[in-house]
């Protein structure tokens, strides 16, 4: 298993956002994480990426215990993530947004050039891959909503992550863009990148994912292949609020 979430809990005051949650993501798969609003999906992402520390439980990535590590450490181990509400750095250019993650390494590297030629090349290829290469020199704040989604998606690929967490990558984007995003995820998955995707669009979930994890009220209520999940009564109950 590439990612193992093991009996993880997180409460905010009295709200148990994630409660004794366990699931695993197999390397090479596209796994969907679904559940009604407030189920705890984004909180789970925050726990995996290190933005939040679990109250209890362990999280393992590629065999390493990453519980409580700071986010940059987890990122460097090969976990990339996007945000449900995009968090591009508005005052930086699109290209600079792509390469911010390269601000690591030795003292010399840190004081070296802002954007190395090979980084620029890689960034431009990725921007081209998602179709926004022509925006490279624009400030990120000038981008449209859909373009921001694409930038966030492209920038997470810069560090060549093994696991990519996407928080509602298709939320609020038009159908043409949605097709593009689905296609790019599939292409990247074929090169070996593992995906864990929070998504509300059920068509997308069902035709893209190999495995589906269903959360409700902070708990994982079931996990399995999409065909089985589709006909699972508990999933329907969760979405219809009958739990």
């Amino acid at each position: 298993m590439l990612l193992e979430v093991d009996h993880v809990s997180k409460a905010f005051g009295g709200v148990r956002a994630v409660a004794d949650c366990s699931f695993a993501v197999q390397e090479g798969t596209i796994t969907a994480l679904i559940g009604p609003n407030g189920a705890g999906k984004t909180t789970a992402f925050n726990l995996i990426s290190g933005i939040l520390t679990p109250d209890s439980g362990r999280i393992k990535f590629a065999g390493n215990d990453i519980t409580g590590l700071r986010p940059h450490k987890i990122a460097r181990l090969g976990v990339g993530r996007t945000f449900q509400i995009t968090r591009e750095l508005g005052d930086l250019t699109v290209l600079e947004n792509m390469v911010v993650g390269t601000a690591r390494g030795t003292f010399r590297e840190l004081l070296g050039r802002r954007v190395l030629a090979r980084e620029e090349q890689q960034a431009m290829e990725l921007l081209d891959f998602v179709g926004i290469a022509r925006l490279a020199d624009q400030k990120a704040k000038t981008l449209s909503y859909g373009q921001r989604k694409l930038l966030e998606f492209a920038s997470v690929l810069m560090s060549r992550p093994r696991l990519v967490l996407l928080d509602e990558p298709a939320g609020g984007v038009n159908p043409a863009l949605l097709d593009r995003i689905v296609d790019r995820i599939r292409t990247l998955n074929q090169t070996g990148i593992t995906f864990l995707i929070v998504e509300h669009n059920m068509d997308m979930v069902m035709n893209l994912s190999d495995e589906v994890v269903v959360m409700a009220h902070g708990e994982v209520i079931t996990q399995g292949p999409p065909t089985r999940i589709r006909s699972d009564d508990r999933v329907l109950d969760a979405y219809l609020g009958r739990v």
Partner: peptide, 28 residues
Amino acid sequence: RIAHSKFGLGLRALAQDETKAEVAGIDT
């Protein structure tokens, strides 16, 4: 020199959004 370095880029990133900078891999 700082403004033109990766260090400076990282500072500008964290000035705008520290969480985002961390998640991108910067030791803020």
